[in-house]
């Protein structure tokens, strides 16, 4: 997706400076790794041929490599932080002056869990790049989240731990325009939830009593809806709202999940890549540098308008 965003001259200057910093980082990385690779080769040859001196030399050569790599860590984080603050910051400003980015904050794990977007609780949780703003009466924020759970299998070689994604992507949350008291969750339809919904519909005393059957066929095809209050779920998910969510879902690569809780709405968008990060091994000086970031940014920003969250004709202001 291409966006017509051109950086203001002041930011172009920052990008040019960052490009110099980036090149330095790349050359330092190459230097560091060449020492290490060369050192390892010497060490291996030394061990294979039984030449102790060569092995020791190899070991010694590798040390400065490790030091160089260790020392550029700080420079890399400075590079990333400047990119986020100054370049992404400028991009945010071009969309809306109220948008702010805090690279070190995100959506905290307790909020992720209490949003009830997912049923599995994470064993490993990372979040960054919190972007917040306000459009008219609706305040919102979103952040990158990587939540995983682990499974352990006992094998003859010991325990084998495997990590699985619960969500790798962005969680968007906004103040909802209607008052409600219960919890309504819209989850992608998968095999398990399909069976649960079938049982709840067809067999008494089996399955989930909280499943909400809605009239929109397209919506039902993609999602299973759970709610603590059948009427409230329909009060939130009006025919118009369902259509809007369908549209939003269609424009997302993977099926989204939504939850309505504590007068807020949460939307989880699974994504393939980490956004708002500067390239290290590719140049910054290309016109499409921010295209992906900008398309995600405008996508999130447009949600408030698309879901009509600023329509405050009900008692909630």
């Amino acid at each position: 997706m291409s966006t017509n965003f051109t950086l203001p001259p002041a930011v172009q200057k920052v990008v040019a400076e960052l490009e110099i910093q980036r090149k330095k980082i790349v050359s330092n990385k190459l230097q560091g790794w060449s020492f290490i690779v060369f050192g390892i080769i010497c060490f291996v040859i030394g061990v294979v041929l039984g030449l102790a001196i060569l092995a020791i030399v190899g070991f010694i050569i590798a040390i400065p490599g490790a030091i160089i790599l260790f020392r550029i860590g700080e420079s890399v984080s400075n590079y990333k932080s400047r990119f986020k603050q100054e370049v992404i910051g400028a991009a945010l400003n071009s969309v809306d002056k109220s948008l702010t980015l805090d690279p070190n904050r995100g959506i905290v794990e307790s909020e992720f869990t209490s949003s009830q977007l997912f049923t599995t609780s994470p064993d490993r949780y990372n979040t960054e790049d919190l972007i917040s703003g306000k459009i008219d009466k609706t305040s919102f924020y979103f952040a990158e989240v990587h939540a995983e759970y682990k499974t352990e299998v006992q094998t003859k070689n010991g325990r084998q731990v495997t990590w699985h994604d619960i969500l790798k992507g962005i969680i968007f949350t906004a103040d909802f325009n209607k008052n409600f008291n219960g919890v309504t969750v819209v989850r992608p339809k998968n095999f398990g939830s399909k069976i649960g919904a079938w049982f709840s519909k067809n067999v008494y005393s089996f399955g989930d009593k909280n499943v909400v059957e809605l009239e929109n066929e397209n919506f039902n095809k993609n999602f299973v809806i759970y709610s603590t209050d059948q009427i409230e779920a329909r009060y939130i998910l009006t025919p118009a709202m369902m259509e809007k969510i369908n549209d939003l879902n269609q424009r997302s690569a993977y099926t989204i999940s939504l939850s309505f809780i504590d007068t807020r709405m949460y939307i989880a968008f699974p994504l393939d890549k980490n956004y708002f990060e500067p390239p290290v091994f590719k140049t910054l000086l290309k016109p499409d540098l921010l295209d992906d970031d900008m398309s995600v940014l405008t996508f999130m920003y447009d949600i408030v308008r698309e879901l009509d969250l600023n329509t405050r004709i009900w008692t909630k202001q």
């Binding site: 209607k178 008052n179 909400v212 059957e213 809605l214 009239e215 059948q230 009427i231 409230e232 779920a233 329909r234 009060y235 009006t238 004709i313 009900w314 008692t315």
Partner: peptide, 16 residues
Amino acid sequence: TESEEQIAAARRNYNS
């Protein structure tokens, strides 16, 4: 307006 939407929701719930 809110009551209108709530009644619409209740009617849809009834129909379901």
